[in-house]
Write a protein that binds this DNA or RNA. Structure first.
Length: 508
RNA sequence: GCCUUCAUAGCUCAGUUGGUUAGAGCAUCUGACUGUUAAUCAGAGGGUCACUGGUUCGAGCCCAGUUGAAGGCGCCA
């Protein structure tokens, strides 16, 4: 039997055997310092000539990056080490010597295309390890919340015979000679189940065939869809707020180490747990977005104008620093210092490139926000601008009916609006939850199905839910990967799922 | 689908108004040194400058097309 790094607190001063892979190596004449990983964590293993003897030390010298090995040795407390321990190796067993691991460099120094091509190996890197562990805890937190609240987990079908919501592009397949589609949502089925169980939630894969190549879109992703009988939209919003706070609270409690690896700002997440989520109508959101209404003295348009100015200034600073360093290099300096300065210059050029993207994009965003009309749907940049004036996630409700799905309940006395609610995450992460109270009136529903040019025959079973004991009910859908991206503060959803399937990417 | 930017060593990138034999860091290999933690030092190998065509005495650099990538928009969760 062997031991795991995560249990080392119980083994201080004792001998253990750990089995895993070499994550990094530093060599000296009489010592080999291995950064070692076993899946549960990372620890430094020190192989000394003194402890191993000539023969085994020679063998240990052959260990390369990502070679697999079992080390036996004492667990020693050492404050200098991450995690507080190191293993002083007394013997070892080599499983396999790896040759030329393709991701030998720091993750930061590798290109995103190259990393994605090597996703099967990229997963071994520390940052990716941390993300997958946070994802796991998010999943557990989601189940924990709903199970504690007496929800029943249900599995909705993945194959459907018709394009349910009628709005999105679906992957088409074949079902015993008939056309079939991969599910884009389990919601309608969840509604049926909610009429049987009261409170239910789905947790399953979802497929969208839109050709959306953006940092927040996947073709195959995991969605959580709770559905509650006798819930109005206000109850729905209360639930969303408690739910998100619960999951993030759990991550703050359980994933300190992982968030540290990811250099995540804890205070931003703590704020989500502590603050009340603002709730604004879509009409108010438009006023804020266009800069006509301010929130706590903050103006959405002005914030962007400031960002633009700051970016421009920073570009000038970077350029100045580059020319200063170049001049200094030309004047002559020691080799070490020259290398250092050259590395700095390359980093500054990278920063300038990112800032120049920003400088090009912000004016377009401002233009789009200023000209925003009531009744429209928000674009990605609009969501970013909107959330910048708040420091907690914001819930936008009462949406224009024409941009939302047919099943959403109309606002009393105003059929142009529906009781939808979107949760927009702060820091520019945008929509992570979309939900609504569902229409209960069969006649309204039939009218809406026609208005959306859907085939009523496909929805007869759904209409039955309104024929037999129709009740007010609500629910929402959460995109798991969008939540992981937000909590981990990632640039792109490709890092939030082990093997991403998105537009232009189906391997590895 | 649209816009912007880009494509140079295994990887990340420099390469000046077009001018001899295209450079650096990391990675790999050799050696030195050191309880190291982005280790350091000395050396070596590694390139059809994305592809096709054009301009020119001369193209990594200019022009056209093709392919691919990054960021943004749209569509959407």
């Amino acid at each position: 039997m062997h031991q795991y790094i995560s249990d080392f607190a119980n083994y201080a001063g004792k001998e253990v055997t750990v089995k895993g892979w070499i994550a990094n190596i530093r060599k000296s004449k009489t010592n080999l310092f291995f950064s070692f990983r076993d899946g549960t964590g990372f620890v430094q293993c020190v192989a000394s000539l003194e402890a191993l003897g000539d023969e085994m030390f020679e063998q240990a010298k052959n260990l390369t990056l990502e070679s697999s090995v079992a080390f036996t040795g004492n667990v020693v407390q050492d404050e200098r080490q991450e995690g507080g321990f190191e293993v002083q190796v007394s013997s070892m067993k080599i499983y396999h010597i790896a040759d030329g691991f393709p991701l030998a460099q720091r993750e930061k120094d590798l290109g995103v295309k190259y990393l994605e091509d090597n996703r099967h190996l990229w997963l071994r890197k520390k940052r990716q390890w941390a993300i997958m562990r946070v994802r796991n805890q998010i999943i557990m937190g989601i189940h924990e919340f709903f199970q504690n609240e007496d929800f029943v987990q249900m599995d909705a079908p993945l194959l459907t015979g018709s394009a349910c919501e009628g709005t999105t592009d679906l992957f088409e397949t074949e079902f015993f000679g008939q056309p079939a589609f991969l599910s884009q949502s389990g919601q309608l089925y969840a509604e049926a189940m909610a009429m049987a169980q009261g409170k239910v939630y789905t947790f399953g894969p979802t497929f969208r065939a839109e050709k959306s190549d953006t940092p927040r879109h996947l073709a195959e992703f995991w969605m959580i869809e709770p559905e509650m009988a006798f819930y109005e939209n206000e109850d729905n919003m209360d639930l969303i707020e408690r739910f998100v706070k619960h999951v993030i609270g759990r991550i703050l409690n359980r994933c300190q180490q992982e968030l540290k690896v990811l250099e995540r700002d804890f205070s931003k997440l703590q704020m989500v747990v502590d603050k009340t989520f603002p709730r604004i109508t879509h009409a108010e959101a438009v006023e804020i977005l266009t800069g006509r209404q301010e929130v706590n003295g903050r103006n959405a348009i002005q914030i962007q104008e400031q960002d633009l100015e700051e970016a421009k200034q920073r570009i000038e600073e970077c350029k100045k620093e580059i020319s200063e360093r170049e001049t200094a290099i030309k004047a002559g300096m020691k080799k070490g210092a020259r290398k250092f300065n050259e590395a700095k210059i390359i980093a500054l050029r990278g920063e300038i490139e990112n800032l120049e993207h920003k400088v090009r994009n912000i004016p377009q965003w401002i233009e789009s926000a200023k000209n925003f009309q009531h009744g429209e749907d928000f674009g990605g940049s609009d969501e970013t601008l909107l959330t910048r004036v708040f420091d907690a996630p914001v819930m936008v409700y009462n949406w224009p009916a024409k941009i939302k799905s047919f099943y959403m309940k109309e606002v009393d006395g105003n059929p142009d609006l529906v009781k939808g609610v979107d949760l927009l995450a702060p820091e520019g992460f945008g929509e992570v939850i979309g939900g609504s109270e569902r229409e209960t009136d069969i006649n309204v529903l039939i009218r809406k199905i026609k208005e959306h040019e859907l085939d009523q025959n496909d929805f007869e079973w759904y209409l039955d839910l309104r024929r037999y004991g129709s009740v007010p009910h609500s629910g929402f859908g959460l995109g798991l990967e969008r939540l992981v991206r937000w909590i981990c503060n990632l640039k792109h959803v490709r890092e939030t799922i082990p093997l991403a399937r998105r537009y232009g990417r189906i391997t590895p």
